[in-house]
Each structure stands twice: as C-alpha cells, then as structure tokens.
Design a protein around this nucleic acid. Structure first.
Length: 438
RNA sequence: GUCCCGUUCGUCUAGCCGGGUCCAGGACACAGGGUUUUCAUCCCUGUAACAGGGGUUCAAAUCCCCUACGGGACGCCA
C-alpha cells in the first residue's frame, strides 16, 4: 500500500483550542504510527476572520505539543502552497472541471454545486458504514469570488494526495457533501475516520473556546508539561485497551490505531489532566527538571543569583517529587535560600501548642554543633539519642526543628531537609529561633 | 423541524465484533484507614455503572427492535 498522507487543516481565526489540538494529535499519531506524512494546511479562505496572531498561536501550540509537520508552513513540501489563500488558481482550475461536467452553475452571483441524486455511502474507519443523502445544491464560490470550505477541502485533499481524513464527528454530516465532490472530480475517496468530540466539563455541549481550560495557550502559560497535556489528550477518545495511562509518546505512537478510538463523546476533566502533569513531572530526570523550572525560579526571584549550583540541585532533588506543578515550586522551596524567612503563623501555633519548643531547639543546637557528620543516618541517631536521654518522643524535637529551619510545618523529611541545608545553615537557623523565642 | 452519530461507576474508560470465565475490571475524583517527624508523597480499603422497555437464547453489558436521553450537522463560517 502507498504511503499514508494525513493532514491537519485548521483555520487561524482565534485561539488554538483543545479540540483542534486533539485532531492534530490524532492525525500526527497516525502518520507517525504508519510511517506516513503529516501535513499542515492552513484554511484561511475566510478573509474577514483570519489573523496573523491566531496563526502564530497555532504554530507555537503545535510545536509546544511536539506535533511536527512534514509539509506545511515553514516546512515546505511538494504539494504547496499550504495556505488556501494562495491556492486560488488551483481552485479555479477545478471549478472549470465541474463546469465542464455540468456540475457547477451560477446563481445570485455565487457558484453552486449540483448534487447527484445518489445516497452517499461513507465507510468510516471508526463508525462503520454511514449513509446520508445530500438534499440540496450548495455554494462552492461566494459572490465575492472566494471559494467555500467544502470545495477547497476536497480539492486540496485530492491535490495533496491525502489518503486518510481523520477529523471530529462534527464533520460527519458534511462528509456527504465531500463525497459528492470527490465523485464529481472522478477522484477516489480517502478513508474517512470521524472520532468523538470533547464535551465541556460542566453543562451541555461540546467544548468551545470560551470554556474553562479550553485553550492550549493557557496550559503553556500555566507551565503544564506538554507531554502531560498530550498524554491526557491521547486518552480522550482513544485507549490502548490494557489500562495503561501514563505512557511515553513512543509507546503511544507504537500502539495508536483506529481500533482504540471510541465512538462516544468524552467530557474534559481538568483534575485528571493535573494528575498526568504530576506523573510526568516525577518522570523528569533531575537535570531536565532543573532546566525547566528555571523560568519559574527566575520570575519569582526566590533563588539568589549567586546560589551554588550543587545546592540548588540538591534542593530540587528533594522537592521534585513533592510538588504537582512548576508554578508551586518557588513558594515550596523559598526558605532554602533565605535565612530570614517568616515563621508561618499556623505552623508556629501548632508547634507551640504543647511542650517547650525553645528548650528542645536549644538542646538540639548543642547536639548538632558538635556533630561533624550531617548524613541522614547520623542526624536521625542524634535526634533519637537526644529524645531517649531526656525521656521524650522524637516528635518533640522534630516539630520544633522543622519550624526553626523552615518556618513551616510541611515539607520534605526532616533528616533529608537538614542534610541538604547543611550544618552551617542549620546551626544559624536554630540560633535565630532561640534568639527569637527564647 | 429534518438528517447523522452515540448511551457501562460523578468523570475517562475495559469488556461488546466471535453471547456463558462480568453479582462488570482499571484510572481520576471522593470517603475511610495506615505508614512517615510533617505534608502537598506513598500504601491499603471503600462508595459507585451495563439509560428504559420488549424480543432472540438454556444463557445477553454483549445480538435485534422500540422509546427516552445526549451530541452533531443542516451558512455565500471552517
């Protein structure tokens, strides 16, 4: 069989939203799975509504998601141009063919396509056989001379040698118009595959640009991991049949196919997306994690410029598995880089509710000052030894210690925390606590 | 209104084609419990679904029909 050629054909009229992104994704996956060609074609025939800004958003979003195209804008290819606005001559030629065949006529200043009286049969790769009869002739060129979507899409799919048309179910009813045109041009039908739509999380209807969480741009801005968004999107309407969820893109490409695509619409769930983000965050090698979180750290300025790189790495290594997203990291690690952090009121109250924290911290300070080995094992032994010697629970030292060195009541395990902070910082902070609270 | 597509836990879904192994499995969310010095981690447990009705069959989530509901398309938008 000849090589698979699929296309994603958006119109740059607004934001790049999740539904479009998934259409692009499924086409891309199918191309990569089959070793085929993924084409990006810009459907900008509606001059009124297209904007360069929307195009930029689209290309950025595609790249962010890792959906590289083999032919299209900025990539070139032998079937260009890839902007419909530049394909006027091709449309005119094809219109002539229809006129010659007696299938096009003028009315009210527009050009109309004369439908056949045949019922159209669509062998859909996902839905099976679907029959639909077109009921009336439709416009293919507007009175302002611009060609209409149903016409351009078919002409381009023929001219670009598209073998498979993969798109949302919202196009299923239009497909009978398209098959009419394919037949009128004497062209073979591509294989159609219509997948389910993404419905909004709450309320009726499909997801639209106005809905919460609908924009790819939003996820870029909120620093989601593109592989997490992509992974989640793959599972909205497709599944590998064996309960696998968090997968590498190579694994998804390997397993992707029509048999795993569902027929019923899926509701978008931001909580599950957040879960994928957390999972993928944990999978990141520390060096990558460090590199990626840099912008968040720079933006908030929590890490001073002269910070030792090894120390930063150690801190991140400790905290990577504790956070659920990049933006929450700066606040989570702030105290590591600032000895003069504030003691959180809630944590302070909690710790001071019982026992004698200042005394415990003083005892701990004395013990740690003479401790050379700041390994977790040694620290643990020291604290436990101290507790035993004074007939107290280790918790009576641990909680005040945490408050004293971090100002909070939550965070990484205390021994690891102290190890990373190191002796000098730890001592300094314990002293500060003693000075402040006696 | 007409036509097209669909309907399994709150949500994403497995199972359906080739009916029995399904008093329906997994994940997210939620609830409870546990581990840990803490927590935003981790572990365990629990709650919870075959839209309804009719048929076919020894047997139906699985096959057929009807109804209801959901979604989509009916533009000189794409």
């Amino acid at each position: 069989m000849s090589q698979v050629r699929v296309r994603f054909a958006p119109s740059p009229t607004g934001d790049f939203h999740i539904g479009s992104a998934r259409t692009a994704l499924f086409n891309w996956l199918y191309a990569r799975h089959t070793g085929g060609v993924f084409i990006l074609r810009i459907e900008d025939t509606d001059r009124e509504r297209n904007t360069p800004e929307a195009l930029r958003l689209l290309l950025d979003g595609m790249r962010w998601l890792g959906l590289n195209w083999d032919e299209g804008p900025e990539a070139g290819g032998e079937h260009g141009p890839y902007f419909q606005s530049e394909r006027g001559d091709i449309y005119k030629e094809h219109l002539e063919k229809l006129r010659e065949a007696g299938r096009a006529y003028d009315k009210d200043g527009a050009v109309w396509f004369k439908i056949s009286d045949e019922p159209q049969v669509i062998e859909d790769a996902i839905r099976g056989r679907v029959e639909r009869t077109e009921e009336k002739d439709f416009v293919i060129f507007r009175s302002n001379g611009a060609p209409v979507y149903h016409f351009t899409v078919v002409v381009d799919d023929i001219a670009m040698g598209i073998t498979h048309v993969l798109r949302g179910e919202d196009h299923l009813s239009n497909t009978s118009k398209h098959t009419e045109l394919f037949v009128a041009f004497g062209a073979p039908l591509p294989i159609f595959a219509h997948f389910p739509l993404i419905l909004k999380s709450h309320g009726p209807g499909k997801m639209s640009k106005r809905d919460e969480g609908a924009l790819i741009e939003d996820y870029q801005r909120r620093r989601f991991l593109p592989e997490a968004v992509r992974n989640y999107l793959c599972l909205l309407g497709w599944n590998p049949k064996d309960d696998s969820e968090v997968m590498s893109i190579d694994e998804i490409i390997e397993r992707f196919g029509f048999t795993g695509i569902n027929r019923n619409n899926a509701r978008f769930d931001e909580k599950k997306l957040a879960h994928f983000n957390t999972e993928h965050l944990r999978l990141l090698p520390l060096e990558t994690f460090t590199l990626m979180v840099r912008p968040d750290l720079d933006e908030t300025g929590v890490v001073p410029e002269d910070t030792d790189e090894d120390y930063l790495q150690a801190v991140l290594g400790l905290c990577q598995e504790k956070v659920r997203s990049f933006p929450e990291l700066p606040a989570y690690i702030g105290y590591f880089f600032n000895d003069n952090f504030e003691y959180a009121e809630k944590a302070h109250k909690k710790v001071f509710r019982k026992g004698d924290p200042p005394t415990r911290v003083r005892e701990l300070l004395a013990a740690l000052e003479s401790l050379e080995d700041f390994s977790e094992v040694a620290l643990e032994q020291t604290l436990q030894g101290l507790a035993e010697a004074n007939g107290l629970y280790t918790g009576e030292y641990i909680h005040p210690a945490r408050l004293a060195v971090s100002g909070t009541d939550a965070g990484p395990g205390l021994y690891a925390l102290l190890r990373v902070l190191g002796k000098e910082r730890t001592i300094r902070r314990l002293k500060r606590f003693v000075e402040k609270f006696g």
